[in-house]
Amino acid sequence: MNPLLKGFLREVMPWTWQVFFALAVCTAASLSFDASLGAHSLGTYLAYISILPMVLLFRIGSVLDRRAQQGWPHQEILRNANGHKAPLNEMIGSAILLGATLLLGMAPIVSGLYPMPNPSSGLYPVHVQFTTQDDGTELWLFDLGSTVPKTARLLLTVDWSEATVSPENAVVQSPDERQVRPIPGELVQWDLSEAEARVGKLVLQPNAQSGLILRKQLCRLEIPRPEADALPRLLLHQFLFFLPLFAILLAWFRCGRIRGSLSAMATFTIASIAALPLSPVDLGSGPVAALAKMLVLVKLALPPVEGLLATGHRFDRLADTTPELGIMGWLMLGGLALWLATRRRPPRKG
């Protein structure tokens, strides 16, 4: 390993910090999976683990500040004509530490220290309410609020009391002519297509003049919980979410010439906005609403990557909802930030 990279890794993560991270992971596992303490939720565990990359972000910010006080920027200007060696090493170092942190997050589960209860047996899927509209033309319009996992399905309750069709002839179908036969006394189960899951909206239509009535209050979206073996994939998602943020931190610090701790704060703000799930809420008016609208605008300008940081109680709904294009866009944003960070620093003002 080259001395620059080794020096950066040692400075960011001395043994005291390594112990702190290991203890933090153990605590997270205890609070999530312990028989008496734990919330028995993978989403809770992922939420605790996601704190560590953020701590790492601020830690790197403070190390960048310290290195600036130690005269490293001067040495870079003096020794490196194109100025890319130090930021590239810092980026590689950040990626290694991020990867190691998330791998550490797998340790309590993989080692069997905290056997995670497998909640994905189908016994306890998540049921989510959503908006249902009826336009009076016997079209059932469903708005799921946002992208949902491809594995989700609709559970619909149909009232047959005014039905004019026999159960054998009753059909509910979508515009692309996929159909399902409703059976009296049973829930209508509609598996979402990839497009429907992505858009989060769909239209279904029963037979014309069938008299089938949709019980809107009883409509549910059923989302299977990710299984225990989904943990590596979900941690990889966190890796993809946080990796560009370290490049953005370096860009703030090096190109924006902002102090490392403030750069970390600015990056954390971007991360918070990127992780914000948008839902159709009327924001109203007033200064707070104006601020919220501004945040929404910034959020819309960023790639839709909130699904990569699926944590907490809504993680089942967000996990695996990020489109590949969103991930590509997010990584490209990180690439752009890294390119900015590797540009040679101009002399400071006299």
Binding site: Q75, R79, K85
Partner: peptide
């Protein structure tokens, strides 16, 4: 420089090794 700044926690050799690597 007249007033040099150093990473005081590094050994002389480690520091120079890193600077050597930094050279273009």
């Amino acid at each position: 420089p007249q007033e040099p700044r150093f990473p005081d926690h590094l050994t002389c050799k480690d520091y120079l090794n890193q600077l050597h690597q930094l050279s273009a």
